[in-house]
Design a binder for these strands. Structure first.
Length: 226
DNA sequence: AAAGTCCCCAACCGCTGCATT
DNA sequence: TAATGCAGCGGTTGGGGACTT
């Protein structure tokens, strides 16, 4: 039995927010706060919006001190390091970047940072990017077997996990060309404490990020500079 | 100038975890 | 303890502007 929808899709407004709606929501929250009830909020304000939509709009756009665009190399660096250690936990990554939202970080990663590392277009995803092909061949094209055993050998790695391994390898190469293989850091049984409820198939050891802090990533590489 | 393609990003969808009853 | 409902989260979509042909 599925759960009931949070709002009536036939009566709520969807799509882009108008300036009037933004003003109504912003004014109300600045005066009264969210009152810990997003579902009731639009009714109190008189907005024909879903509570979840109001929450998202406030958190990602209307909240004070929100920054948009113009990520600095330092922010890039932070995102790379945290992605290696905790993967796509965008809300946690965003808390380390003042003024940034999880949605912003996620979009920035998907449109810019990932592209910088993998060198492929989004529409090539799943087909194997030129960069990923290079990586495959550089590892003898038999990466999957090695990874399977590193993963316990009892289940295939998801596409996102494989992609993360590729990204990790790229980052490791930038930081420490002669260093340990990322596969040696692959410890599926050691979950990052903050994400013990993470249902992803695997997790990298957080020491990768700690290592990154003592040995900062090469900003030239990470910012895509020649 | 028009048509086609790319791709950014705001917003939506659906799942999970937690609190409450 | 089980059922329910909400907040929060990550993945995905699609509108529309930018760019290319």
């Amino acid at each position: 039995m599925g759960r009931a929808p949070c709002c009536d899709k036939a009566t709520v407004k969807r799509g882009p927010w108008s300036p009037e709606e933004d003003t109504m929501l912003k004014t109300y929250i600045e005066e009264h706060g969210t009152e810990n009830n997003w579902i009731a909020l639009p009714h109190k304000i008189g907005l024909k919006r879903c509570g979840k939509s109001c929450r998202l709009r406030w958190l990602n756009y209307l909240r004070p001190n929100i920054k948009h665009g113009d990520f600095t190399p330092e922010e890039d660096n932070t995102i790379y390091k945290l992605y290696i250690s905790i993967a796509s936990r965008w809300s946690i990554i965003a808390t380390r970047l003042p003024g940034r939202t999880d949605n912003d970080v996620k979009n920035y990663w998907n449109t810019e940072l990932k592209k910088r590392l993998l060198g492929g277009r989004r529409k090539d995803h799943g087909q194997g990017t030129p960069a990923s092909n290079e990586l495959d061949s550089a590892n003898g094209g038999d990466q999957s077997n090695e990874l399977d055993s590193a993963n316990g050998g009892d289940q295939p790695l998801s596409a996102s996990t494989m992609e993360r391994i590729q990204l990790c390898m790229q980052l490791q190469e930038m930081q420490n060309p002669l260093g340990v293989s990322p596969l040696q850091l692959w410890q599926p049984n050691r979950q990052v404490a903050a994400h013990s409820n993470n249902n992803s198939s695997s997790s990298f050891n957080v020491t990768v990020a700690e290592q990154g802090q003592s040995s900062p990533l090469n900003d030239q590489h990470l910012s895509g500079q020649p």
